[in-house]
Design a protein around this nucleic acid. Structure first.
Lengths: 350, 350
DNA sequence: CTGAAAGCGCTAACAA
DNA sequence: TTGTTAGCGCTTTCAG
């Protein structure tokens, strides 16, 4: 016979009784944020009683009274993308240190699931939301600017800029990548992007184009192909089409590392070597891309710091800080490894 | 002036008023698990009212009354180990489908943080816990067998077997690896393990030894070195020491894929090629090890399924199913890739 | 500085 | 079938 109901723990009344005070006094004594509201001898008696009984306040009762749940929702597109792990770690660690619990929701890159995840998290009365899934326009996310729990976006922002965003300086990183390739002698670049409805895609695509134009002399051309996802399969598809349509291209700037992995597949499938025939640059420097063959040259983003800062911005809002919609930009860095090299002496076209 | 308090949503009283019934009737009407407790016309009026107002029940109030939080805690050792991502996904997806929220806690492989994470999760009144961090003996985890929320372990079990465990059939997978290496002609194997206080370590180590002994003829010897963690750095250290102390070894069975990655580093550092000089087998088949150079031969575990089954076992317990302490074992499979080959013709000893 | 009283929003017993 | 009542455990006025 399973005793299903959890054994009830001691309540504040038990603590108060043991300390010989009124429950409300016990409550005050245990509230660290109100020092001096209770005489010290009394307070320490209460603390001793609480400790002796192993008292743990009931969050439901407290939450019902205070209207605060101590919960934050974290909405992510796909946990198996390794770049997310350090970000989530940073978020979780920072939030936990501040006394918040992290409710995780993986949307599997599905906008419908994003919307329902946000609804659910809101139904659970999360005080705040960290959202890593935002598309440039998304009713579900945009609504949070007007109504609902405080929200902070990571990496992916809204076109309206209506919500605070903590993102990496992709433009700078991508520009460095373009200059790196141009310096190696590449004159025909391609940029294979993720979905156009993500801010990261447009930021990076614009940076590729503009940094190519800004070269001295401006003799590097760029072909941009847009993909429909940030997956290896998307990268494979894109690269396959690109390589056959544009044999003049000798270097690819991938929208992220997953797409870059797909590019490697497509190159191998087309009998092209990386970097001898085609150079490749990724984006994110996600774990393990330094161990590929060839080791991937990529734009490193401060993964953990993104998570930490996003959590901090959220905590600031929850603490009632000024409601300025911040757009925080963290530095990136081009990490040159083995996947970039000078172009082959002759054009690839056979 | 920030309006900090969340705008109060409609309550069940609002719904009841709009539907012209008593709050308790409205509550019953909205409780799907009690069909027929309310006349259909009344019930549909209540539902309409709830819908019209956008009523969402307050989980704190409900939880206070029902003693159920709808929360499950998920305790993991290190999110950046890619093998955990699919497991957590499986857990989260299954739990969410059953209406539970997932509170994530990353312990960073620290037993003290495991203990405090469990305490915190319990303080938040989680109804259940999925624990992927258990060591063979751990007061914090063992206590859950007696007192506290229902708990299910994944991958790592307790020596006492006091809690249900969902794990992969490591023994079978490792035995297949040993037979594979023996068939290739290896006679001197090494096994580099994770920490000895993890059940996975002892399971795999025993399997390596026993399957070597069981070979016909039993002419393969095994040297086992124990490490202190499941990280790349641990693998590097272990392999470095092994390779210099045991030049006769031509094949390594790594405790997991992270250790295997460290082995690759150490081999490269020692001027040994994989697989020409030393063969290598990993464990877990975590994402991306198929893309290394060489592609890693490894024991694949059903990652996502482990998470799904663990969640299902937990849900079963929460539903009051028989309290049998189940030890669920899911099949593994040796995936042969490029890191294993016949040993070099002459012994490595120079 | 401490006690009394009330009530957060919900649902489970009980009554009608 | 529906309404009445009560109370989950906590904190927060308001009195004293």
């Amino acid at each position: 016979m399973a005793k299903n109901a959890a054994a009830r723990g001691p309540t504040i009344r038990d603590v108060a009784a043991l300390a010989g005070v009124h429950p409300s006094t016990a409550s005050r004594a245990l509230d660290a944020s109100l020092p001096g509201r209770v005489a010290e001898p009394t307070a320490s008696r209460v603390r001793a009683a609480a400790h002796a009984l192993g008292y743990v306040p009931d969050p439901a009762a407290r939450s019902l009274r205070t209207r605060r749940s101590g919960l934050v929702g974290v909405v992510i597109p796909d946990l198996t993308n390794p770049v997310l792990a350090p970000i989530v770690q940073g978020v979780e660690e920072t939030l936990r240190a501040a006394g918040f619990g992290c409710l995780l929701a993986d949307t599997d890159n599905d906008p419908a699931r994003e919307a329902s995840a946000i609804d659910e998290l809101e139904a659970r009365r999360c005080e705040g939301l960290v959202i890593a899934t935002a598309r440039r326009r998304s009713a579900a996310v945009e609504r949070l600017a007007k109504r609902g729990p405080a929200a902070v976006l990571v990496t992916r922002g809204l076109d309206t800029g209506a919500l605070p965003l903590v993102a990496a300086d992709d433009a700078q990183g991508v520009a460095a990548a373009v200059r790196h390739l141009a310096a190696l002698g590449h004159r025909h670049l391609a940029h294979l992007t993720g979905p156009r409805d993500l801010s990261t895609t447009v930021r990076r695509a614009r940076a590729v184009r503009e940094s190519a134009k800004a070269l001295e002399p401006p003799d590097v051309d760029v072909v941009v192909h847009h993909g429909s996802g940030f997956t290896i399969a998307d990268g494979r598809r894109l690269a396959r089409a690109l390589l056959s349509a544009h044999p003049e291209v000798t270097a690819i700037v991938a929208g992220n590392d997953m797409i870059a992995l797909g590019c490697l597949d497509a190159m191998a499938g087309a009998g092209l070597r990386c970097p001898e025939d085609v150079s490749l640059v990724g984006h994110n420097d996600m774990p393990f891309v330094d161990r590929l063959e060839p080791a991937l040259t990529t734009v490193a983003i401060p993964q953990r710091a993104l998570g930490v800062r996003a959590a901090e911005v959220l905590l600031g809002r929850l603490a009632g800080e000024a409601v300025a919609t911040e757009q925080l930009v963290l530095p990136t860095q081009l990490v040159v490894r083995g996947s970039t090299a000078p172009p082959p002496p002759a054009a690839r076209r056979s």
